[in-house]
Each structure stands twice: as C-alpha cells, then as structure tokens.
Design a protein around this nucleic acid. Structure first.
Lengths: 149, 149
DNA sequence: TCTGATACTCAGGATTCCTGATGATTGAGG
DNA sequence: CCTCAATCATCAGGAATCCTGAGTATCAGA
C-alpha cells in the first residue's frame, strides 16, 4: 500500500475529468432544483420540456433514450407532465404505436417564465469566460457527448 | 405563439451549455453504472470513494456538501459503504462530534480494480481531443465549478 | 403469415433522497 | 461560567424516482 506523506492534498492526482463534469452538473442541478421548486417541476422534468421546445413531436421512447432512462421511467415523467397540462400527447399519423408529444401553451409559458433565471444561472456558471471560451466549452462538451454514443 | 416552419431542427436555438453539461454527465453516469454493476456499488458511492481517495479523513457532512446532498442522505450512503467494509469511521481526536472517514484496504482494492475501466471510459469521452484540448477542458470545467460557489 | 423488434403501459418493489426530530458537542458572547 | 446558536451525526417516516417483469398493440421483414 502506498504511503502518503501527511495527507497533503497537493500530493494527490488531479480529479478526473469525469469527476469534474459530475461536479459541474451537481452544482447546476442543485441550483436549478432550488430555482424551479416554486413551480413544482423537477430539474429532470424541466429538462424534458426544454428538449421538447427544441424538438417538438418526440415520442416518450425517444425522450427516454435521450435522457438515458428506461422507457417506463420516462412514461412516468411524461404522465406527470401531461396531468399538469404542460404537454399533450397525440397519436402519430405515421405510426399507430407512437404518440407524439407537444408542448401546450401552458408548457411554453412555464418555460418562458423561468428562462431568464435559467439564463442567469448559465451566465453565472460562465463567469469570467470570454466569448471565445464559451464557444470552445460548447464545442468540447458536444464532442464529449458525441464520443460517448 | 411562434410559428415553426416544418419542424426543421436547424431552426432551433442551440441547446444551452447547462443542457450540454447534463448530457455529458448523463452519458458518463449511465456507462459508469453499467461498469460498476458487478461490484454492487452505485456511481454515487464510487464517486464518494474517489473523493476519499484524494482527501482521506473527510467527515460525512463535508462529503455531503461536496456532493450537494443533505447530511442525512450522505449518512445513508456512508453507512452502506461502512457495512460493506469499504470505509471505516473513527472519532476525530480534534472534535468529538466529527467522525473522520478513511478508505479501508478493501475500499482501495475496489478502486484499483475498476480504475482501468474508468480511465478507459474517460479516454472514450475524450476521443479526438488533443492534449491541449484536454487541458483546456479541465480548466474550463474547474472554472465553471468554482463560479457556482 | 410468422417472427422478431419496437412503443407504450400497468403493477410491484427497491432504492434514493427528502423533511422533521433528537442528542451530543462546540464555540462565541454576555 | 453559562447560555445559546450552530454544527455533526443519526433515526424515523414518507415521497419521489427508477427499476424489473409482464402484457398488449403495432410494425417490418423473412
């Protein structure tokens, strides 16, 4: 077993990039949960709404794959959003087993209501970043995501 | 309400950086859970072990703050790790209400056992990254984390 | 037509994480 | 010295999340 001299933190290897990613996500999720608490939607539900905002008409199964959860779990989440009137499901004319999901006006209102605070949170995360660094950060994150399948 | 022309994805605004961070974390956590399943520890438990590997002697409350969960939740997690013999708690000589947590040899063995696969996962995430880009990625992540308090 | 894969859902249970409450300890201020 | 607020840890109970397993309907291809 390796002997460590006096527990000096600077002795240790730097944290892995996997860990750094997790830390940033944990910090943002904590802030996002707090921010969304009054509205009664969780960070995960809000995320699903933002996905639908960008890609309207996704199915529950597609959302599940996008969020790395089982179709059953996403069915629960989607059911909750539907009961709250934030989304609506309708049969897909192209395939009778699929149900396409759309934001309702109420869902869009909820997104619009919180957009400024969420943008502020993102700006806070990027404090001290130049515009160039923001672009680089976006590029690196997207490439990391793509590399993981 | 805004009218969208034909659902063209390229019409949409790019996803927020908050979302991109979440996507990378979701992808890595899914892979990490799968990777760790045989060992019976969750990704969160494994993460706590790696934190202790770098900073031995933390208290449960410190770990909780580090992971953005309540002290009660961390107490559950720490209790599970202790029952499995991966960590040991001992009273802090400097303060009788604190318990310092240390990895056991068994805990260190578990980390060593999975280190190669975890490193491989990180390498996979960084596919196509130059050494320079990896350093930049690390710097940006650390600054983002620091900016969030 | 038959077969395998996919989409969705229900039922049940395991896990995780929370709120609330309790006890012990500490340090600051009167 | 003596409150008293703050901190550490933990127990109890419950809410939320996510899973496995099972079942139905639909689709696509051999």
């Amino acid at each position: 077993m390796m002997v460590r001299r006096g527990g000096d933190v600077t002795d240790a290897a730097p944290p892995s990039l996997l860990y750094s990613v997790k830390q940033v996500e944990l910090a943002t999720r904590a802030r996002l949960d707090e921010l969304l608490r009054p509205s009664g939607v969780t960070a995960l539900q809000y995320t699903a709404l933002t996905v639908l905002e960008r890609r309207d008409g996704m199915s529950s199964a597609e959302l599940a794959r996008n969020s790395f959860v089982t179709p059953q779990s996403m069915s629960d989440l989607v059911g909750a959003l539907e009961r709250r009137g934030l989304i609506a499901r309708s049969p897909d004319p192209a395939s009778r087993r699929r149900h396409v999901i759309s934001l309702t006006d109420e869902g869009r209102e909820l997104l619009a209501l919180h957009a400024p605070a969420v943008q502020h949170l993102e700006d806070e995360m990027l404090t001290g970043f130049t515009a160039r660094e923001r672009a680089v950060f976006r590029d690196l994150l997207n490439r990391a995501r793509a590399a993981l399948g």
